[in-house]
């Protein structure tokens, strides 16, 4: 099962290594990881997306809670929350195809942030599903590169 885990941590060196090694030591692959400062400059938030065996994941959650630099751990599974990811897609858009690409970008309410003679860079924010949909639509034109920030999540209300 896919879990969105949000972790509040002390903003200091070595913390990311401690957390990532907890996952890797148990054979978990981190699908997505986003780190940034919170409203307090000495506290960072990590949003981690993992899939895996529930029992092992329960153990990982406990181990996370036990780590001395971790202030709070939230698993968003089953809780109302928002997820957002920002993607940049460099897609082929030569003369003949450019208007088609622009149309798709428009429908997704994405943005063109860079234009070159043969390609454009599309920027979009959304959840996993929306991003996949856009990527699928643009694929036939030839995607040259995709960069994503990783998913961030916030509880509703």
């Amino acid at each position: 099962m896919r879990h969105t885990i949000s972790v509040l941590v002390e903003n200091k060196p070595g913390v990311l290594a401690r957390i990532s090694s907890l996952f890797s030591a148990r054979g978990f692959n981190i699908d997505s990881l986003a780190v940034g400062e919170t409203e307090q400059h000495d506290v960072s938030r990590m949003t981690i997306i993992v899939k895996g065996d529930e029992k092992i994941l329960e153990q990982v959650m406990k181990q996370l809670n036990k780590l001395i630099d971790i202030i709070k751990v939230i698993d968003f599974v089953g809780q109302p929350h928002l997820e957002r990811d920002l993607v940049l897609i460099k897609v082929n858009a030569g003369k003949g195809k450019r208007s088609e690409v622009l149309e798709i970008v428009d429908i997704f309410r994405a943005k063109i942030v860079d234009v070159a003679s043969n390609s454009v860079i599309v920027e979009m924010t959304g959840d996993e599903e929306k991003i996949l949909a856009l990527v699928n639509m643009l694929k036939p034109y030839g995607i040259k590169e995709i960069v994503r920030t990783g998913i961030v999540a916030m509880g509703r209300g």
Partner: peptide, 14 residues
């Protein structure tokens, strides 16, 4: 040293 001992200590500091 902090990297090497991270997983075999309760905590470590540089």
């Amino acid at each position: 040293t902090t990297g090497v001992t991270r997983s075999i200590t309760k905590y470590n500091y540089l």
